[in-house]
Design a protein around this nucleic acid. Structure first.
Lengths: 334, 334
DNA sequence: TAAAAAAATGTTTACGTATTCATTTTAAAA
DNA sequence: TTTTAAAATGAATACGTAAACATTTTTTTA
C-alpha cells in the first residue's frame, strides 16, 4: 500500500506538503505541486479515505435504511437518494431493512460514523429517534415519521386514505375493504384513519370483516386475497394502503381470472412509477406535484449536514387521486 | 466521542484489555470482562469501525456498482447482493452507474479501500478490469463480463439471443426486429450474435431496418417505437435484448392502443420478477433454474474475500424460453 | 538595504483502534 | 516449598492522514 509518506519521499518534500497538494494546492508553489503530482502518478498513489475520516471525524458517507426495493416505491426513492448523494460526493451505505430486523441495521449505523442517516423504516415510537438526536447525527425520515413529529418528509397520509375511500364511495361502492399494515407505522395508521373518516362522512358502516392487516409480503397478501374471495359477502372495492399492496393484489386477481375493475375495484396509495405503466394503470393517490419523497428528503438531509441548518424539517405534501383503470362503479350497479 | 481509552480509564484497565474484551474475550478473566462491559454500557461506547479498518487494512465493506434499479433486473440482483452482504456482516456501498459516467464511480472505489467489488456495468474492454486485478482487490462481474473471460457470472447470452429469435421464428414470424444496446457490452454483443445466428439457421434474411440500438433509456426506446410504427413495412415481432427494454416497449404500444401480442409480438431476455406479473406476463428467456445472478455472484465474491479462493470464477447459466402472453403467431397469418 | 510581512514548507501530534512485545499474576509441576 | 509453565494484563507502536504550530524562504515596505 503506497501512502502519502511514500509520495513525499519520492518527491523530496514532507508528507504535509503532499496533503496540501491534494487539499489546498493554492497554498503550494507551482513547481512543488508538479513534483508531487508526478510522484503521485508514478506511484499510483490513492489517498486512504479511512485515515482521512479518522482525523477529520467526517466520513462523507451517509446511511440509507430503505424498505425493500421489490416495493416500487423504494425503487424511486432509493434511486433518487443514491444518485443525489453520489453527485454531492458522498457514498451511501444501503440497507434494505425488514421491520423485524431493524436493530441489526441500527447498530451498523453507529459503528461506522456516517455523516447522516436517511431512513424510511422508522416506527412511531422508535427509540432510534432519540438515539440519533442524542448523538447529534443529522437524520431525516421519509415516508414514515416518528410520533415526535420532527425531521420527516411525508405525503398527507390521512388525506390520502380519505381520498382513496372517497374515490370508491363516490363511484357507488359501499362494501369497501381496507388492506393496510401495522398501526405503529405512521403511514399505515394515518391512512387508515383517513379511510375510516371517509366511511363515517359518507355514513357507511365499517365492516370489520373487510379490514385486513398485512406485513406486505407477497405471501401475506395472497392469503388475504384467498380470504376475501372465500367470503360470503365480498367487497366490491379495495383500498390498498400502498401501491405495492395493490400491485400484488392485482396479480392475485388476474391469476384467478378475475377482472379489474369489472369484478372488483382496486385503488392504491403512493403513485409509484410502475403504476403508470400501460399494462397496469393503477388508480392511486399520490403527491400532487409527483415529487419523489426520497429526493426531497435527501436534499433536506444535506442542508442539515452541510449548512448546519437548524430549523426542524417537517414536510407534508398534498395529495390527489390519479384516476386510471383499476376502479369503476361496482359490479352490482352496472 | 467516547473512545476505548475512556472505557479503559473508567474500568481501571488498559486500552488493550478493552480491545481484547471486544475481540478475544476468551483471553480475559471473567471479572475483568464484566468490569469492562459495565464501563462500555455506562459510557455508551461504540467502537469506531474506521479506526479498526485503518489498522487492520480490512473494511468489511464491499462496493456494488449496479445498473439503475428502474431496470427490474437490477432490483432483483441488488436486493440479493445487499441482503447477503449484510448477513455476512458487511456493508455495501451502492452506486447506480450510468454507462457514460463510469469513471467517477471507479475512483470512489479505490479511495475507500473496499474488501471487494461487484459490478454489472463493465465493458468488454474496460481498463478497470486490469486495475482491480493489479491492486489485488477481489471482484466479480455479474450480467456483463470482460473480454478476458474471467471472474464473471452470466447467463448464456448467445443462446438466449438465439432462443429469443427462434421462438418468434417458430411462431412463423419472418419480419423480426432486434432492439439491443452497444456492442461493447458482452450481453448485448452476444445476445445479438445469437439472434443473428438464429435468423441464418432459419434462412431469414436480416433486415437492417429492423435492427436498433438503444441506450436503454425510456426516451430512446420511445423514439425507436415511433420509428418502428412509422415504417412502411413493419416487423411483426420484436426481440428485445432485455426485459427492461421489452417492458418499456410494451408501455409504448399499449399507450398507442396497439395490442400485444395481437398486433405485435414481443419477447424479452432476463426473466425478471416483474415479467411474471399477471398484468404483464412477458414472454422472455432466462436462466433455467431462475437463479438470481446477483446472488450467485455475491456468494462467489465472498468465497474470494474470505476463503482466498484462487480458482477463477467463470459461471454461465443455461437458459430457456418462458412462454407467457406477449408472443403469438404473426398478424398476417391469423 | 534593512525590517516587516507574507508565502511556502516542515515538524510534530492527534485521530481510535489492533497488535507486538514485555511484564506481572496465577496455576501446575517438581 | 520452589521452579516452571501458562494465563492475564499492560506499554508501546503502527496504520495514513490532516492540522496545529514552527521554521524557513520569498516578497513587500520603509
Amino acid at each position: 500500500m503506497v501512502s502519502s509518506k511514500d509520495v513525499a519521499k519520492k518527491a523530496g518534500v514532507s508528507q504535509t506538503t503532499v496533503s496540501r497538494v491534494l487539499n489546498t494546492p493554492e497554498l503550494v508553489k507551482k513547481p512543488t505541486v508538479d513534483k508531487v503530482m508526478r510522484a503521485i502518478e508514478e506511484l499510483n498513489y490513492i489517498p486512504n479515505a479511512n485515515a482521512r475520516s479518522l482525523v477529520q471525524n467526517k466520513t462523507r458517507t451517509i446511511a440509507l435504511l430503505s424498505g425493500p426495493i421489490h416495493n416500487p416505491f423504494f425503487v424511486d426513492t432509493t434511486t433518487a437518494i443514491v444518485n443525489y448523494a453520489n453527485e454531492m460526493g458522498y457514498r451511501v451505505h444501503v440497507q434494505y431493512v425488514s421491520d423485524d430486523r431493524l436493530q441489526e441495521a441500527y447498530t451498523s449505523i453507529f459503528e461506522n460514523k456516517v455523516d447522516g442517516v436517511i431512513l424510511s423504516c422508522i416506527f412511531l415510537d422508535d427509540p432510534i429517534f432519540f438515539k440519533l438526536k442524542q448523538l447529534n447525527i443529522p437524520f431525516i425520515t421519509y415516508n414514515r415519521k416518528h410520533k415526535n413529529n420532527e425531521f420527516f418528509v411525508e405525503i398527507d397520509n390521512f388525506y390520502a386514505g380519505y381520498l382513496s375511500a372517497q374515490h370508491l364511495l363516490e363511484l357507488g361502492h359501499t362494501a369497501i375493504s381496507w388492506i393496510g399494515g401495522p398501526q405503529n407505522r405512521s403511514t399505515f395508521k394515518e391512512r387508515y384513519a383517513g379511510f375510516v373518516k371517509a366511511l363515517e362522512d359518507y355514513n357507511i358502516a365499517r365492516n370489520d370483516d373487510f379490514i385486513f392487516t398485512t406485513d406486505t409480503s407477497k405471501q401475506s397478501i395472497q392469503d388475504i386475497f384467498q380470504h376475501i374471495t372465500s367470503l360470503d359477502k365480498q367487497p366490491t372495492g379495495i383500498c390498498a394502503a400502498t401501491d405495492s399492496i395493490a400491485l400484488h393484489l392485482l396479480d392475485c386477481f388476474i391469476n384467478k381470472n378475475l377482472k379489474v375493475p369489472e369484478d372488483i375495484s382496486i385503488i392504491g396509495i403512493d403513485n409509484v412509477d410502475l403504476s403508470k405503466h400501460g399494462l397496469i394503470q393503477l388508480t392511486t393517490v399520490g403527491s400532487i406535484l409527483e415529487e419523489n419523497l426520497g429526493f426531497l428528503a435527501i436534499k433536506e438531509l444535506f442542508e442539515m449536514i452541510e449548512n448546519k441548518k437548524n430549523s426542524c424539517v417537517r414536510i407534508t405534501k398534498s395529495v390527489k387521486v390519479f384516476n386510471r383503470r383499476t376502479t369503476s362503479v361496482p359490479k352490482q350497479t352496472i
